[in-house]
């Protein structure tokens, strides 16, 4: 019986420690699921975490579009779409925001795209012109950092975003 109590006590104290030590996710640090008015469309609400990520993503896309080194990977961004169709900027913005929301710990976001390895493998994804190399990935990370800086994201959070993307390097860089 005492052993059992000690075991339960131990479990309880472990849980308490876990609660105390439980860190906020990056998504929560960016505002989490608190609903705010969407500056794009004031009649709609958006989670603050998603809004922060979307702002970074949109700025990043402009940095990418201006970078000739990344052009082969993101060429459709700069191709005109026929009238009435969703622009590739909107498609990429939505897809990247979904992905980053899920990757940073959003409980409500969903990402329905391909997994990162397949998405960056030309053999599995015909929309991937060529395999990414380390130099291009460095350029991509630099673009995200620049995009975050443009949105005044605190440097410690930029570091966390950078670490998150860096963790995907081995999956995405395939040559």
């Amino acid at each position: 019986m005492p052993a059992c109590c000690a075991f339960l006590l131990g479990l309880t104290s472990c849980d308490k420690d876990n609660d105390d030590m439980q860190e906020q996710t990056l998504y929560e640090k960016l505002g989490g699921n608190r609903m705010v008015s969407d500056p794009r469309n004031p009649s709609q609400m958006i989670e603050q975490g998603r809004l922060g990520l979307r702002s970074v993503v949109d700025s990043t896309i402009f940095v990418i579009a201006a970078d000739p080194n990344l052009q082969p990977y993101f060429a459709p961004l700069l191709a005109e779409v026929t009238a009435g169709n969703t622009t590739n900027l909107a498609v990429l913005s939505r897809s990247l925001t979904d992905f980053f929301s899920v990757a940073t710990g959003s409980a409500t976001a969903t990402y329905s795209g391909m997994n990162m390895r397949d998405a960056h493998d030309p053999a599995r994804n015909p929309r991937m012109a060529l395999k990414a190399d380390n130099k291009s990935y460095d350029d991509f990370i630099a673009a995200v950092v620049k995009g975050a800086q443009q949105n005044n994201v605190p440097s410690e959070l930029i570091g966390e975003v950078g670490a998150l993307i860096e963790a995907l390097r081995t999956t995405i860089v395939q040559r």
């Binding site: 052009q71 459709p76 191709a79 990429l92 929309r127 012109a129």
Partner: peptide, 26 residues
């Protein structure tokens, strides 16, 4: 900068505009 249709067909964003789903929805 002008993007050729070939370049546009072989890069991100990851959406296959020739897919049946895309054609139906658009």
């Amino acid at each position: 900068l002008r993007i050729s249709s070939e370049e546009a067909a072989n890069a991100c964003p990851v959406i296959d505009q020739h897919s049946i789903t895309y054609r139906i929805s658009s």
